[in-house]
Write a protein that binds this DNA or RNA. Structure first.
Lengths: 124, 124
DNA sequence: CCAGATACCTTGTTACGCAAGGTATCTTTC
DNA sequence: GAAAGATACCTTGCGTAACAAGGTATCTGG
């Protein structure tokens, strides 16, 4: 029945697109204070943004894999006394450099957008 | 031997990804003051952002087509006294509403990102 | 009539975010 | 000690958007 009941594509899809290219930065940023494991990163993000930015683990793992492959994070397995093994990720020096670079790029982009969107416009 | 001579994957690709989902908003915004034709929009964007945000016409036309299809812009052909025919785009009422909605969504997203990235962190 | 400029349009590639589904390990309960 | 549930990691397939590259049509100037 729900022919386009929850389609509402216009609304839902935008956020996904906006997140594009920002996720890598987000993850690097969340790793800045210290190491963390996959599931932890997911909940950290939800928590720190009050739920306004979220990812599922299925989204996160490919990102982490990319980061590892690029040498931006190092990986360590640890089995806690209680619970299943966890894979801890930690920024490398290159990762920190990348974090700084991406933060810069994101900020530049956001500023350009903000300036463009600012309605103020003195007569030409 | 240019193994990855001009690939420079990391750097070039990011901006493209960041633009994702923002282009539609950008175009709607550029149409807000009044109608414009395709090529004009391309140069308006380059001009207004001092070149920090750019699109090629091959990127723009699909966007315009989407907007037209969604009813956010109306279209009018005009052949100027000198030169080739031009296709002028103008915001519809729905287009204006969409512009407002997207601006809102973009701002919300940008604020969430900015807050996350802000390093300041008072001891909990 | 031919070269060049203007303007519009199409196709194929690439990459990413995501939902859905899958695997493995540990804990609890009976 | 088997079943059920929780935790955590990983993979596959899909949709979509930005872009480069290439194509078409119209007008202007020599």
């Amino acid at each position: 029945m729900e022919k386009d009941g929850e389609r509402a594509e216009g609304r839902k899809g935008i956020e996904r697109e906006l997140k594009r290219g920002s996720l890598e930065l987000i993850v690097l940023h969340l790793l800045a204070p210290g190491e963390a494991y996959g599931y932890e990163i997911v909940s950290k993000l939800t928590e720190e943004t009050g739920g306004s930015l979220e990812v599922t683990d299925g989204t996160l793992y490919p990102v982490l894999y990319r980061l590892e492959r690029a040498g931006f994070v190092s990986v360590r397995w640890e089995t806690p006394q209680r619970g299943v093994p966890r894979k801890y990720y930690r920024l490398t020096a290159e990762g920190r450099a990348e974090l700084a670079a991406l933060t810069q790029e994101w900020t530049t982009f956001a500023k350009a957008m903000a300036k463009l969107l600012r309605p103020a416009r003195e007569g030409k």
